[in-house]
Write a protein that binds this DNA or RNA. Structure first.
Length: 103
DNA sequence: CGAGTGACGGACG
DNA sequence: CCGTCCGCCACTC
């Protein structure tokens, strides 16, 4: 599989996460047929150009926390976007029990 | 080519 | 529940 094909798979999986639900990096990787390659998912989302139709904010780490990145403002923005669609937080983490995407 | 570095995650204490 | 250690893998020096 070429790197581009892997990216397309990742984006298509993320695009299918329902509004108000969240998925983990590892979950996205597994659904894309890329087991144990969660880091690749993080890399893919990091490279995602703004404006494309990919709800990157619905992907959080396995603990329900918003992963750190270069721009702290983007992290706060992600939480804001999630809360705007009804996702509730318990402290600094998403209430995975009620919001993780079953699939 | 080896070492370091991540939008990660599971195992373990 | 938390910190650590490791496996993983693309990328940069």
């Amino acid at each position: 599989m070429t790197p581009d094909e892997a990216l397309d798979l990742i984006y298509s999986v993320v695009a299918s996460i329902p509004r108000g639900r969240v998925a983990t990096y590892g979950q996205v990787a597994a659904l894309a047929g890329l087991a144990r390659r969660a880091r690749l998912v993080g890399h893919a989302l990091r490279e995602t150009p703004d404006g494309v139709d990919v709800p990157w904010h619905r992907v959080v780490n396995h603990q329900g926390r918003i992963s750190a990145r270069d721009e702290p403002a983007s992290e706060h923005n992600q939480r804001r976007l999630l809360e705007a669609e009804g996702v509730r937080f318990i402290g600094d983490r998403v209430d995975m029990e009620s919001h993780q995407w079953d699939e």
